[in-house]
Design a protein around this nucleic acid. Structure first.
Lengths: 204, 204
DNA sequence: TAAATAATGGAACGATTGTTCCGTTATTGT
DNA sequence: ACAATAACGGAACAATCGTTCCATTATTTA
């Protein structure tokens, strides 16, 4: 793979005909939609548009590809969510924007795939150590982001400092996970607005 | 199968060597733990303790068995939850007991299987009409139960009648689903107590 | 242009998938 | 005891599973 080996220049072979990141996005969408066990290598070969051998040469095997797709999702989506908690000046508004973004994303996808990390956790976490670890890390990350934004709100007087910030953070994180499940049975926006509206009252 | 046919008595054959309901419970636990795609017919034959042909003769095929297991779960568990909303005199206490029962059940299972209906919805609802329907029915049932208990609380002065009862019900239902996902990444009871404690404040 | 190297496509692997079939066994009502 | 019926165990099915292998093709540096 590398052009340099032991300090000597070597011959180079042909370059990949596909964009690895692009293929990874496609794999992510496939696993996200149909799950690990529901997605066959045949599905992947057809869906990614590359050959079996290129698939194995580039990503190892099915399980490694799945993990990489899940990591990619977390780096894209999880990080985006966490960043949103520091954007608005008002902590309450930041939280509200986060919840609304979650719902917008959920309803914006007409496949109703939900959250890849939640889906993976449900399908795999109990039997797959690697997925379990990714899930717990992701979980910690969002819980911490919620904790921080609430503490910020308490510091600037928006939120009652007597409240348990960690408990509030855990609660909000739990609400997000509920939303990501609820989209499997409803696509009624009023339904989600009801939940967001109610959840936000815990900050008053 | 039936002993009577066209009004005439017919000969009877040997009876089943197994208890159908008992086998169904075992199937339920298997699908619940490993999902539909993660559970093979071989797993079922070994886990249920009956032969392949008995399995097919009794339950049809894998998909029908899965649906029956899911229905059984809903009739056992979902109905139990809904019933709990009418048990206590106080609406607030009823809701609190429900949430605590959910968490007790989740943590009482050292396999951390979560909620079969949620798991099924995540894995199947998008691609399986039958599962989708079971999920939506179950969803409606619990939402209605929550709505009723909240209206009861508003009627007896426990809960502010100015609040949106339907929104509160949807919120609580959403919280339950969050808990059923959260158990995949945590088994810390304090974590769940934080969430319950916070969620219940919306009723004040 | 030639040598070197890796990507590619496709055939092929054994294992496992869900399902069917059949000969045997057991239990029933007459 | 007999005839009738269904449950049973296990072999066998084609299809698909994830994976490996190899000859071919394409691209690079010297």
């Amino acid at each position: 793979m590398p052009a340099v080996k032991s300090g000597h220049f070597r011959f180079m072979a042909r370059t990949k005909d596909f964009d690895e990141a692009e293929v990874l996005q496609k794999a992510m969408r496939l696993f996200w939609s149909k799950g690990y066990n529901g997605t066959s290598m045949q599905d992947l070969v057809e869906g990614l548009g590359i050959s079996r051998s290129s698939l194995y040469d580039t990503f190892g095997d099915k399980h490694q590809l799945y993990l990489k797709a899940l990591e990619t999702y977390q780096q894209n989506y999880g990080t985006q969510l966490c960043a949103l908690t520091t954007k608005a000046d008002s902590a309450k508004i930041a939280v509200k924007q986060l919840l609304q973004l979650v719902v917008d994303d959920l309803l914006g996808d007409n496949q109703r795939k939900g959250c890849f990390m939640v889906n993976a956790g449900i399908e795999m976490a109990n039997h797959d150590t690697d997925v379990n670890q990714l899930l717990c890390t992701s979980e910690q990350q969002l819980e911490q982001a919620f904790l921080k934004v609430i503490q910020r709100g308490q510091a600037n007087g928006e939120i009652n400092p007597a409240k348990d910030a960690l408990a509030l953070g855990r609660f909000l994180n739990n609400t997000v996970k509920g939303l990501q499940v609820s989209v499997k049975s409803t696509s009624d926006r009023a339904f989600f607005d009801d939940i967001i509206k109610t959840a936000l009252t815990v900050l008053d």
